[in-house]
Design a protein around this nucleic acid. Structure first.
Lengths: 243, 243
DNA sequence: TAGTGGTCTAGACCACAAA
DNA sequence: TTGTGGTCTAGACCACTAA
């Protein structure tokens, strides 16, 4: 198990956060299981209660844990509710919804950046982009069509991967050290153009949920522009608001 | 100015939060303006730094303030980005988008709760609901149709108000002390039914962004069920995700 | 009664911005 | 040099849960 390094430049709470988060995501601590009490975490990591609570507050805010006064702190069960606030892969998304994901790669090529996409990514028009178009299936039926544009400069050769089987996000992380940690997106309802309607197996002009997303790396650099058309009759988004 | 009551059952941080929040929302503290430093807040309200910082963390998380190390803490400028995370009135929403809002009341009546809505609100089917149907305009053109269902028990007589001119949210707050502080919603793309298409001035089966929302009061009681159909060609949602 | 999380205090040292 | 927010500590009292 990783432990806190007192000489690190990283704040103690940040190190402890990474450690606890890893224990949860790796399933070392199972959903529903009680995690060590605040007192135990203080002893184990030799930090103050304030620091421990700061970390638990962060994890609770993210929905990874929940607390029960007088009882303890527990690992939360993953819920669909997280979908719209956390960046989630198609595979993960479908699994949360209880459907079996599938993928067909429709096309994959290098293209010069069109003006509109270049603007969104903060690069020059004409710069080389890796374009990947995929049909996504849920339980064998078409669910969405995704069009990814990656700034090729940051991930030369990405298109050599097989993205029917592998996750694009995983490849970016493992081969290029790029973690997509933040994204901005807009959501619209638009009628399916003819070609898209055929791919999705719906009548032309059917309502689709259309999302445009720009994703940023851990260094806050725009890396990907994504267009997704979801079938309106099969897909819905969920989120929570506060006043 | 309100001040903290030490004998109150409410936690100090909660009272201080309400006070600072009110100063911001009432525009007593203008956007961009520096708010009192942590040291000043400690003196003014006679609480510890921990308590002050807990409150500032909450406000920063909400996006109401931002901090600059070494400089101070400032009131944030309202941004469109808040739209999908904060609960926003139609009027406020349109103003942020730079359009002039308008409203026509289509119908208003008391109805027994249908099974599906009763479930969402956590009440018995058949319980009395106040139903309000409104057409929303932006720059004089139809933008959306809203159908509100309020649990009448909590706000007897609401329907006497004129909700073409007044905000329903304001009426709930001022007349019934109900503040909608939290909501859950799902977002879909669906084709406009004939009747709706006429109201929105679009062809039948046009794509609409359809939102179902359950809103909760400060006491965490479900108060309102809302259905909104936005014209797909005029409206888009925006939000930010984190990895 | 013992253990848990919720709230709160008084103090400390740091890096950074501005004068 | 002064004031700001960022991080961290050690300790306290409370209400609640479970044995």
């Amino acid at each position: 198990m990783k432990s806190i390094v007192r000489t690190s430049k990283l704040p103690l709470y940040h190190q402890l956060y990474e450690i606890l988060r890893e224990n949860i995501l790796s399933r070392e601590w199972q959903p529903g299981e009680m995690i060590p009490s605040e007192a135990e975490l203080i002893d184990q990591h030799e930090v103050s209660r304030t620091t421990v609570r700061q970390v638990l507050d962060m994890l609770a805010k993210e929905g990874l844990i929940y607390r029960q006064p007088g009882r303890g702190t527990f690992v939360a069960h993953p819920t669909v509710e997280q979908a719209l606030v956390r960046i989630v892969s198609f595979t993960e998304d479908m699994q949360q919804r209880g459907e079996t994901p599938g993928t067909h790669v429709l096309s994959s090529s290098l293209v010069p950046a069109p003006q509109d996409i270049a603007e969104r990514l903060g690069i020059e028009a004409g710069e080389e982009l890796a374009r990947l178009e995929r049909l996504r299936l849920a339980d064998g039926e078409p669910m969405s069509v995704e069009e990814s544009y990656l700034v090729h400069r940051y991930c030369r050769g990405v298109l050599r991967g097989d993205y029917a089987a592998t996750s694009l996000r995983q490849a970016l992380e493992r081969q290029y050290g790029i973690r997509l940690v933040r994204a901005k997106q807009t959501i619209r309802a638009i009628p399916a153009p003819q070609k898209l309607a055929r791919l999705l197996s719906v009548p032309p002009k059917s309502a689709t949920l259309y999302i445009e997303r720009v994703s940023y790396s851990q260094d806050d650099i725009a890396v990907e522009f994504l267009r997704i058309h979801y079938r309106g009759d099969r897909y819905s988004l969920y989120n929570e608001l506060q006043g």
